[in-house]
Amino acid sequence: MKFIDRLEHLDRRIIFLLVGIAVIIPMLIPLGLPVDISKPVKDVYDKVESLSEGSIVVVSADYDPGSEAELYPATEAFLEHCFRRNLRVFMLGLWPAGSNLGNLALEEIAPQYNKVYGLDYINVGYRPGGPVMLVSLGRNVADIVRTDYTGTPIDSFPLGRAVKSARDIDLVMTLSAGDPGVLHWIIYFNARYGTPIACATTAIMAPQQYPYISSGQLIGLLGGLKGAAEYETLVERKARAVGGMDSQSIVHVLLVIFIVIGNIILFSQRRKK
C-alpha cells in the first residue's frame, strides 16, 4: 500500500520528465509506424483530385503560431497537392498571423512547382470581419479585397481578376484553430453560396466537425497532426506530420498508462476504505 500512496503523491515533475522523454526519443530513433488513412481525409484528397486543372481553391489560414505545430504541416501538404494538380490558390487569413504562416508555406512549396505569384497563386493577407466579411466576400470579392498582402492592387494580377465572387471558387480549404474559422465558412459561405468546404483543424476541434461532415456541409476533415500525416501519406510527401506521429503515438500510450495507474490507485483506495 505504501507504494500506492507514493504513486498517489507522485511529483508532477516526474510526469513532465516522462512526457519529455516520450516526445524526444522517437524523434531521435524513428519507429516508422504505419499511418492509416481515415475516410474524412480521403474525402478531401478525392475532392482535390476531382477538380479540373486551373480550378480556384481558396486556402484560408485561420490560425496563429500557437497551432502552427498541428496546422502548418497540413497547409504544406494541401498546397503541395494543389500545385501538383495545377490548381490556382487564393490565400487569405481570418486570423491576423494566419496569412503570414500561409505565406511561409507558399514560399516553400510554390517554387518547387515553378508557380508564378499572381498567376498561379496569390495571398491577400489578413481579412477582419469574420462572418459578415465572408458574406460580402462571396457576393463581391472586390468589396472586401482590393490589394494583396503587399499592398499591390489585386486586379493587377490575372488570378486577382479571375476571382470575382463565390461562383468563381471551386473549393474552400480552411485551416482552422478556432473562431473565426471553419464554422463561419460553413454557415456563411457554404450555406449561402453552396461552395464546397474542406477543413484542417486542431485535434481538439475535430470531433465538433463530424455533424457537418455527416450533413454534407463539410466534404472532409484533416484532424490534428494525424490528419496532416494522413494527407502527407496520400500525397507521398512524408514530412513533419508523419515524423511527429511516432512521438504522438508514444505520448498517447504514456497517457493511457497514466490513466490506468490513476485508476488502480482509485480502486486500491476504495478497497482500503
Binding site: 509506424l33 504505419p34 494525424k226 506521429m245 498517447h252
Partner: peptide, 11 residues
C-alpha cells in the same frame, strides 16, 4: 480515441 487516433493503435 487516444489509441485509435495514432499510428500505434493501427499497429
Amino acid at each position: 480515441v487516444m489509441i485509435g487516433r495514432v499510428p500505434v493503435g493501427y499497429w
